[in-house]
Amino acid sequence: MWSRERIEWRLWHVFRVLSIIFFLLITAFPFYWMLNLSFRPFGDVLLNPLRWTPRLEDIRMALAPIGCIWQNAPQCEAAVRNSSYVAVLVEYGFLTYIRNSAIISLLTVTLTLLFAIPGAYAVTRLDFRGRDMMSWGILLIYMFPAIVLGIPLFVFFVKIQNALGIRMRGNLYAVTVIYLASTLPVALYMLRSYFPTIPRDLEEAALIDGCNRLEVIWRITIPLAVPAIATVALYTFMIAWNEFLYALLFLVENQRAWTLPLGLQQLDSQEVPRTFLMAGSVIITIPIIVIFFFFERFLTRGLTAGAVKG
């Protein structure tokens, strides 16, 4: 019997399978293609742009220098010269950029948590004048355009640099403070929606037992909020790791302070083979994908809980 019910289910089923294939294709293929092109010599890409997989010797050539880390064979010099990954890491300075990105991201995470945990706790649990205003303020700042903040901050940086003689533009640590403008609201917002789920009774019991508020926060609230704090830390890390606009505005002057996204963007010129550009892209993307696969559960929950900006 071909009832309407059955026809529609059949069609939906077919449509669903096709859709899943479509979505897998559009989400996974670009990353596969990035990997593919990062291994293939650019000359070969120009000749055979549609070669679907790198040849075995291409992969071997790109990865050969790994064997040279521990031994110093005579063929190593050539191996290092021919590898796209080594070229990007050593010649184009990506090792420095990795270090800078790691410093700036970890510092941003630490500072964000240091500021956001007490702040969010006060807003959710304590009663004080200006509390509502602060709640609204968080939301407002969350929506405010980064580029609009960029101009005055840029002007201040130039002025401070001139007046005090401290290097501001191209200073990794000064820029970390600015990164807080994009991470703090996210962190406050996410924690503010998590803290109320911790039972008040537990805190009140501890207060009656003679703990003061700070001890309560340290001994009860923070341990119970570890999943949320971990999520915030991961997101903050990812925001800082991926951040591009502020790096472009404030770090471009000083190549030694470039972060990975800025370093990669500066690599985008006619003289640089695309193979290197793709190797650089792989290097930036891998840590994010690894973090994502290890902590997927935290991250998907956090995304909807805090509506992480992007």
Binding site: T27, L260, V282, I289
Partner: peptide
Amino acid sequence: FLLFPYIAPVVS
């Protein structure tokens, strides 16, 4: 996989 485009660095 569906989340990849959103979490990957915009530059790459």
